[in-house]
Amino acid sequence: MSLQKLTAELYQLYDQEEYEKCQKILTPIKLELIKHNLLLPTVANSDSKDKINDLKIAERILEIGALSSLLSNNYRGFENYVAQLRPFYSNKQIHAKPEKNTDQTKIISLYLLYLLSQGLVSKFHVELELIYNSKQYNVEQDQYLLFPVNLEKHLMEGNYIKIWKVLKNDTNLPCKEYGHFLDTLVNALRFEIAKSLEQTYETIPISNCKGLLYFPQEQSDATFESIIKDDLKMTGWTFKDGSITFKNDDDSHKGNVNPNSINLISNVLSYAERIESIV
């Protein structure tokens, strides 16, 4: 019976937004779940209605675990909970109906967002493949899922304006948990833009650069410079006379003009060796 008590306490703590405490209480709860054989949906423990109800509660507990670890900046924990939730989500008995705008899609989309903010694009696409082809989800009509999908699309196209508009305006976010990623995403966005700028311009006035990177104009040039150099880790940007000059990696292009003779020699030698072995 202690499981019920613990669960009730967890719900309460979660509603009071005491996420750190949620984390602490989750460990004993999970132990209890294991004792009751509820941490994993199997064929054996999902054959009656009561058992499915129990599993649903277990799922809700894990969902709270995922959200609370996310909100208390415990990304590893978040990842773990998402992995634990996966068998629940793919179980057809627990989730018979298509999911739309539910906690399930919310958590999945948060996970997608997490992958995106960490720059794990290939994992992102692997997840997407699963989601698009599952009958359970309808990406086009789900406000949660649509958000990260669109974000990635815009990011790839270089449509930074749209992203900025979405990120800047909190009301555009489908739920408050997304706000958590805002800072990381803004940073990632600026990094992307800065990388592009570096390649594109030879020189650019500082004020314009601030505009392009969405920094406020009234920010002093010195702080701007230090942000660029320390936070975004951009090297080769020279600040001079109110404008920035980029030192491009053009050297590598120029280096290509003169064929590297050592390379050439080693190639030819290896051909000779191989031909000799054939003859």
């Binding site: 196209e157 270089g158 449509n159 930074y160 304006i161 992307e192 833009i193 990388k195 592009s196 700028l197 570096e198 390649q199 594109t200 311009y201 030879e202 650019i204 006035p205 314009n208 392009l212």
Partner: peptide, 23 residues
């Protein structure tokens, strides 16, 4: 503005060899 970003991204991805004059 959007065109500028998109072109800049294309340059960075190595799709085209070009530069932009912002002023």
């Amino acid at each position: 503005e959007l065109a500028e970003y998109i072109v800049a991204k294309a340059i960075r991805d190595g799709v085209i060899e070009a530069s932009i004059n912002h002023e």
